[in-house]
Design a protein around this nucleic acid. Sequence first.
DNA 1: TTTGAAATGTTAAATAATTAACAATTATGT
DNA 2: ACATAATTGTTAATTATTTAACATTTCAAA
Lengths: 257, 257
Amino acid sequence: MTRDERMKKMQAFVRMHKSSTIQEIADMLGVSHMTVRRDLNTLSEFDSLRVIHGGVIYREEETEHSDRYSIGQAKTTMYAEKLRIAQKAVSLIESDDIIIIDAGSTGELIAELLPEDIPLTVICYALNIATVVSSKKNCSLIVTGGYFHQSSMVLESNEGLQLLKQNRANKTFITASGVNVELGVTCSNFFERTTKQTALHSASMRILVADSSKFGVVRTGHYADVEDFDIIITDTGVQEEELNPLRHIEHLTVYRV
Amino acid sequence: MTRDERMKKMQAFVRMHKSSTIQEIADMLGVSHMTVRRDLNTLSEFDSLRVIHGGVIYREEETEHSDRYSIGQAKTTMYAEKLRIAQKAVSLIESDDIIIIDAGSTGELIAELLPEDIPLTVICYALNIATVVSSKKNCSLIVTGGYFHQSSMVLESNEGLQLLKQNRANKTFITASGVNVELGVTCSNFFERTTKQTALHSASMRILVADSSKFGVVRTGHYADVEDFDIIITDTGVQEEELNPLRHIEHLTVYRV
DNA sequence: TTTGAAATGTTAAATAATTAACAATTATGT
DNA sequence: ACATAATTGTTAATTATTTAACATTTCAAA
């Protein structure tokens, strides 16, 4: 077995198992721990491996090629706020709910925090969210398929939209790149508009989750107005005065957590 | 912040980042490393966390609830053989190929080993495989959506099948639970049959990847005969004599790696 | 085959993480 | 508000991993 072969095996092993200890790899390959360490150090320069005290971890977002998964960046920014927003969002979920979860890091957090003690059905179109939900107990999952978009992790296709239309939900959690009282709710990618609009129209309760950094911002793709939502959840980073115009919309409830 | 809140945050953090060090979590929560350790030990009893020397790792397959993801088991059995089979399989891949990868652990390994230096298009219907391919460079990805099946990680729906039919491929890598010269190629789940058959009919070169433990075995769902394939890749665990009937099929190439 | 270079294995010293015991703090019921 | 229990923080001892230096093996070129 050549050095390259060994490193390929090591890479595949770590990727498949998400992580490993040095010892596990050494045993698997029948080489010394020093060889594993040396290989791992080399690999970590090229691949998304993180060598920690005691083992290795495979994680995509830590790579230099992070442009391929731009959510990785968004994940850490406003993490505390997004967590609070997601916590408030999942508190609205009841037994036997059918929920649509939109793409984005806040959506992923909602998926992570989904209660596992009540039966739920989740419909989603982002690959990362599908993966999170797939390991949830008590949860049926429908993923609308299609062409994968690296930047947002979204799967997009006519067939997917059809599936989304055919499956009605009682709650939909929608994310946004920009929330502006006058100019409405916007996203960055044009193709996302249709998906988000379909998600909105397939559910009875429409919940907008957007942290304070999104407020006042305007992006290209307009897909809804603030009054199209029943609930808006944001964080304390938005001044109460800024939310006043929203407070006056009769059917709209605004949570600031 | 209550203990439960803290543990929820910890869980979400580790799941989202796939892994973490004790220090990272302690810093994130502003608590001592001892508290993190104690919480993590409690969490690891209920959740799929693996606490290693230096950090924590989230990995689904290591859970007691392993019935929810039965591929987890299959992953480790025949790992070395599956790796060789997958290596042979990817060696057949050429630039600009459009390939379909079937569900299963060997399929996942093929996805892991996909070359990243040539442009490819991958079509798949298993969530785990989609996730692996999504992080590959130089690779377009189409995921046929649908209802998620826990046991095989497959997404299944009419819309998905439609998408699969509409996208032709030049190579398709199909897995099987049973390969029997007389009774044909079989799978365990009935619903998988249609998907596998559609995958077969959408591609010009049909490659069956099956380790030696599958040979001679017969399962319920018959979806093809051995002569429907152009290439069969298996391992040295199959006796050469057993493969003789296959060697006599004219258009069929058999690799034993 | 010989020789040198590269790769791998082995060991002991250095470093880091874990455990356990106790102190300090925080929560809970009366 | 008090006392008690539970939780959390701190520290030192223990245990494990890593590093570095050197020995050994392997491979390739002469």
